[in-house]
């Protein structure tokens, strides 16, 4: 590298640039945090939805599934499962979801297996409330289609 470009200049770019962009990032983060409640419908984030998220985490669902495209890629995306299976009908989705959870693991040999988590009906309802709430987050139109 040329001699006119000194180590001191490189160091200043590092400290100056690093600091500047971290501050900018924090600024944008503040704006994002302010914008999120409306985009995720925080007024609809009920205690039941919150409980659903706890159950989602406690059973490590994200270890096989993705949620809004993040997680594992072994099993279907669930951020839009309400749109895929519920046909816009919450009660139908609750019924479908509870039946699905109770049917696991499905006994087809060689098929990828979902474990039996032994949850109660209330817990199924909380989980499906969480998934319904998630499906309504404004995700900039993602996923491209209902298959997720």
């Amino acid at each position: 590298m040329s001699e006119r470009f000194t180590k001191g200049m490189a160091r200043n770019i590092y400290y100056g640039g690093g600091m500047f962009f971290m501050l900018l990032f924090i600024g944008l983060t503040v704006d994002t945090v302010v914008a999120i409640p409306e985009r995720e419908n925080r007024d609809m984030l009920t205690a039941e939805v919150e409980h659903g998220k706890e159950l989602w985490e406690k059973n490590n669902c994200v270890g096989c599934h993705s949620l809004l495209g993040e997680g594992a890629y072994f099993a279907p995306e669930l951020g839009n499962v309400f749109d895929r299976r519920g046909m816009g009908n919450e009660e139908a989705f609750h019924a479908y979801f509870s039946a699905w959870m109770k049917a696991q693991p499905i006994g087809v040999p060689g098929r990828r297996k979902m474990p039996q988590f032994n949850l109660t009906d209330e817990e199924h309802r909380a989980l499906s409330e969480f998934l319904i709430w998630t499906s309504r987050i404004d995700t900039n139109e993602w996923p491209p289609n209902k298959e997720g």
């Binding site: 490590n60 096989c64 072994f74 693991p105 040999p109 098929r111 990828r112 297996k113 474990p115």
Partner: peptide, 12 residues
């Protein structure tokens, strides 16, 4: 899909 299931599920 059912390799080592249920001893070691995929997520584990």
């Amino acid at each position: 899909g059912d390799f080592m299931f249920p001893e070691i599920p995929f997520n584990v």
